[in-house]
């Protein structure tokens, strides 16, 4: 057992020591420990790293604005604040890391952007479909005041922060991925064992992380693929890769009939 474990300096004491807000005698005790306790010094270093990460993901000016907005909304008669997720969006560096890029294809020249198609199931004749209760995919873009829903065919640009939501409507398993105009396939929702993730029921479920669009040209196309039974990720990724290589329009081709898929295409704004 390490010395730090034996008489661990509580987190709050270390936090306040770093801020210079401990009473003098308490601060002196921490300083004394730091001279000989390597684990404690390591914890201090980790807090430094954490500070940088948090300030990068949630800039203080943004956090302050969210607080002021919530404070204003708490005044009687004021409109209710937006749901929590619309008030905070991790910033680019952390968000880009949240989407696991499985496959990046060689850049190539693509034709003009495809016309966006409405969110559409690939298996319209599926017997278990219930009118009005279809799985769906929804994309949101962060705005200065919160967020907006992006319709199929909406124009976006590099730097836009996007958050993905889905509604399972009773389907048990699903994968969400996207393909950009360079052919990069990114997985947004899957299980850790390279299989489809169990879907959560209820209203629109938001994925934990948002992400920032990069400067890939032409379009960013998002797919929700669902099924009643567990399925492997590989065939879906392969289909997405083929779409990118062959410049095929949505939906993903050659998926077995038990899959249903939903697609939204965002059109990238042409750069000057």
């Amino acid at each position: 057992m390490s010395r730090d474990t034996e008489a661990r300096v509580p987190d709050v004491i270390l936090e306040r020591y770093r801020l210079g807000e401990l009473p003098a005698d308490e601060a002196a005790r921490v300083e004394h420990r730091l001279r000989t306790d390597e684990a404690l010094r390591r914890r201090l270093d980790e807090l430094e790293v954490s500070d940088r990460e948090i300030r990068r993901c949630y800039p203080p000016e943004w956090l302050a604005e969210q607080v002021r907005e919530r404070r204003r909304a708490s005044v009687p008669g004021a409109p209710r604040p937006a749901p929590a997720w619309t008030r905070h969006w991790p910033l680019p560096a952390a968000l880009a890391a949240a989407a696991v890029v499985l496959l990046v294809l060689a850049p190539r020249t693509f034709g003009p952007p495809l016309t966006g198609t409405a969110v559409s199931p690939a298996a319209p004749g599926s017997p278990d479909r219930i009118k009005g209760l279809e799985p769906s995919l929804t994309l949101y873009r962060r705005t200065a005041r919160g967020s907006e829903t992006l319709a199929d065919g909406a124009t976006v640009r590099a730097g836009d922060q996007i958050r993905v939501g889905y509604r399972a409507a009773g389907r048990a398993y699903g994968v969400i991925l996207s393909v950009d105009g360079r052919g990069a396939v990114s997985i947004h929702l899957a299980a850790e064992d390279a299989k489809a993730a169990p879907l959560r029921s209820g209203e629109t479920v938001l994925l934990d992380r948002a992400f920032e669009l990069d400067d890939a040209p032409l379009w960013e196309r998002f797919y929700l693929v669902v099924a009643e039974e567990p399925f492997a990720l590989a065939p879906v990724v392969e289909a997405a890769r083929r779409v990118a290589l062959e410049r095929q329009p949505a939906p993903l081709p050659a998926l077995p009939s038990q899959f249903q898929q939903y697609v939204i295409t965002l059109v990238k704004e042409a750069r000057p």
Binding site: D11, V12, E15, L19, L47, S50, D51, I54, R55, Y58, P60, E61, L63, A64, V67, R68, R71
Partner: peptide, 20 residues
């Protein structure tokens, strides 16, 4: 906000609060 510098507080204490 009132007498408080919200941005300054967010800058200084935001990471500690979020970690907690």
């Amino acid at each position: 906000d009132g007498a408080l510098d919200v941005e300054g507080l967010s800058q200084r204490y935001g990471p500690m609060v979020l970690r907690r």
